Simulated assay, not measured.
Amino acid sequence: MSPLLHNLVICFDSSGNTILDLAGKLAPQNKLNLVSGPAFQMQQELQWFKEVKQIVPSTFWKRLNLEMKDPYVVFTEEHEKLKVDGEKWMKDTSSSCTIAAALIATIAFAAAITVPGGNNQQSGLPIFSANIGFIIFAISNAASLFTSSTSLLVFLSVLTSRYAEEDFLHTLPRSLILGLLTLFLSITSMIISFSATVYIMYGQKKAWVLLPVATMACLPITSFVLLQFPLLVALISSTYGAGIFRN
């Protein structure tokens, strides 16, 4: 480090605060507004605190200022409200996604029981079991059930999380990323399963039906990408990217 930075690291102000104590203070609102959502803001504050901690001597990590507070206490007190707001945002988002995942899992389970075309009364096997469309239906419906169930469990884990400060750095964003990805896969698989069912029932005799069905099938997938993909990109970028330290 340069001599100037070295002096900055080991010095403290009139209140006995080191730069780690100052990093533990809540950022001004104009800096917080650079990222949207209190959970992202909490994550950014933690990233900044951890980055400053790396250049501060370890003897300063527990050093008390004139108010008899160490940097960790300063950070906790300054970010108490932001932590509560971040917890509320996480729970609201997870609750909404949990409802969607539960509906998809219910639909996929019902579709697996009542297969298109019904079953052969003598053998009990599906009537269209040899049809390529039925194979696509079976695979996509199973994928929809498994991914929606996984998404449901992931979002439930977010709802029941302890919501400690450290959880906002990696644990909670990682769970939200996994939940959104599996939810997107379940929606896509559900649409493919429905399209395969339409093909089985009408594709061979009324081929003109497939075009509007295929067109409309793209609507929910496109809507999810447009509405939720920016959130997913922001989560991945802030958790695994360079974040606020990018060049």
Rank of each mutant, 00 (worst) to 15 (best):
N141Y: 11
N141I: 04
A142V: 07
A142C: 10
A143L: 13
A143E: 14
S144G: 12
S144C: 08
L145A: 13
L145V: 05
L145S: 05
L145G: 09
L145M: 08
F146P: 08
F146C: 12
F146Q: 08
T147R: 14
T147F: 11
T147E: 07
T147G: 12
S148K: 00
S148A: 02
S149D: 15
T150G: 14
S151N: 14
S151T: 09
L152P: 09
L153C: 05
L153R: 03
L153P: 02
V154R: 01
V154L: 00
V154N: 00
F155A: 01
S157E: 01
S157M: 10
S157N: 10
V158D: 01
L159Q: 13
L159W: 09
L159H: 14
L159I: 13
S161G: 15
R162L: 11
R162G: 11
Y163S: 08
Y163H: 10
A164D: 13
A164K: 15
A164I: 11
A164S: 09
A164R: 13
E166Q: 15
E166K: 13
D167C: 04
D167V: 05
D167N: 10
F168H: 06
F168A: 10
F168Y: 12
L169A: 14
L169W: 09
L169Y: 15
L169C: 13
L169F: 12
H170V: 12
H170L: 12
H170A: 09
H170Q: 07
H170Y: 11
H170E: 10
T171Q: 11
T171A: 14
L172I: 02
L172S: 00
L172M: 02
P173L: 01
P173H: 01
P173S: 03
R174Y: 01
R174N: 04
L176H: 03
L176T: 03
L176E: 05
L176W: 02
I177L: 08
I177N: 04
L178A: 15
L178F: 15
L178D: 11
G179Y: 03
G179S: 15
L180A: 07
L181W: 10
L181R: 08
T182H: 08
T182G: 09
T182D: 05
T182A: 09
T182R: 04
T182Y: 03
T182C: 09
L183N: 03
L183D: 01
F184P: 02
F184D: 03
F184M: 05
F184Q: 04
L185F: 02
L185N: 01
L185V: 07
L185Y: 04
S186K: 04
I187N: 07
I187S: 04
I187Y: 05
I187Q: 07
S189K: 02
M190Y: 06
M190H: 12
M190W: 03
M190A: 07
I191G: 08
I191E: 03
I191R: 08
I192C: 14
I192Q: 11
I192W: 12
I192K: 08
S193R: 08
S193G: 12
F194T: 00
F194Y: 00
F194G: 00
F194K: 00
S195Y: 13
A196E: 06
A196R: 01
T197I: 07
T197G: 15
T197N: 13
V198A: 04
V198N: 02
